[in-house]
Simulated assay, not measured.
Amino acid sequence: MTTEAAAGEDKMTLQDLLADKGVLLADGATGTNFFDMGLASGEAPEVWNLEQPDKVRALHRAFVEAGADIILTNTFGANRHRLKLHGLEGRVVELNRVAAQLARAEADAAGRAVLVGGSIGPTGELLVPLGALTYEGAVEAFSEQIAGLVDGGVDILWIETMSAPEEMKAAAEAASRSDLPFTVTASFDTAGKTMMGLSPSGLADLAAHLPKAPAGFGANCGVGASDLLVAVLGMTPEGAVDNAVPVVIAKANCGIPKIQGDAVVYTGTPDLMADYARLAIDSGARIIGGCCGTSPEHLAAMRSAIDDHVRDRRPSQDDIVARIGPLVAPPTEPGAERERGRRRRR
């Protein structure tokens, strides 16, 4: 295939690629893989877009070679509020543009359709009334980041690891001002909800009521693959059809994080992540990837699992625990706290 043909093929939309393949594989971790490549603790990964572009491209290339259909830019913290911690708040557009160009180059060289998602993480600030950041200020910050991503050539705006509904709305509003599709994923790491109390079904409801519909929504990061799969069950109704829009996204951590000395080690094996991918399909997800700890080796196992798996019955929570492992932060069922209180008083 010629470079020109490959580049033209990359112009497929997300919906085109979903229609063609059914289930898509998103990439793996950025930060944890960069640490293995020499990123220092406390260093902004986004700086590598300028100082270590070959390493950034090498990770994108490794994910493409492992079979990823979607790769995310190295821009998770590339908004003015996070970058000000490193004195880089004046270089937001530049860092996002360069990151998008690096990912775009690897996607265009793939010889097949690979989409580039512009990673947009939270600002790290609390919105009014809990903090000082206004809704309008959040929209402005996200819009600035998005300008660089769009200029660099991304295909999708990928809003991820969100917790606060108002911040999700602000990011979605900023994304809606562009012509690109966008997705929203949240981190359900606190008894089955986000730290700001949003449930998986609450995210589905939020996505359904945004002024512009997202191309997809779902869960990423969190505390473990089992917890994330249970969250996916909470946002995929029984009998969901394969061509449902928006699609549901599952991008779990590679097993459960464990502290070993000064390092955080993720317990997931390639076999476990392959089984997670199968269960994600059975749970109704149509875009499946890995988050923290997920290496190209894990992703290659997930690629094989997705390609070989025929969607099976919808799993129960017990099925997920039996195959992937125990929940780290299980959802609190209605009335459970009250019942435990009564038992203690007895």
Rank of each mutant, 00 (worst) to 15 (best):
M1Q: 10
T3V: 05
E4Q: 14
A5T: 14
E9C: 01
D10H: 02
L18W: 04
A26Q: 11
A26V: 04
A26R: 01
D27H: 00
G38I: 14
G42V: 07
A44S: 15
Q52R: 15
L72N: 12
N74M: 02
N74P: 08
G77M: 03
R82V: 06
V93Y: 09
V98I: 15
V98G: 09
A99V: 07
R104D: 03
A105Q: 15
D108T: 09
A110L: 12
R112H: 12
P122K: 02
E125I: 06
L130W: 10
A132H: 07
S143Q: 05
I146G: 05
G148V: 02
S163H: 13
A171S: 15
D179F: 00
A191I: 03
K193E: 04
G197C: 07
P200M: 06
A213S: 13
P214N: 06
L229F: 12
G234L: 08
P237G: 14
E238C: 09
N243E: 15
V247R: 13
I256D: 01
P257R: 02
Q260H: 04
D262R: 13
L272T: 10
D275Y: 00
Y276L: 00
A277S: 07
R278P: 00
R278I: 01
G284L: 00
G290D: 08
G290Q: 10
H298F: 12
D308R: 05
R313Y: 04
S316V: 03
P331V: 03
E333T: 10
P334Q: 12
A336D: 15
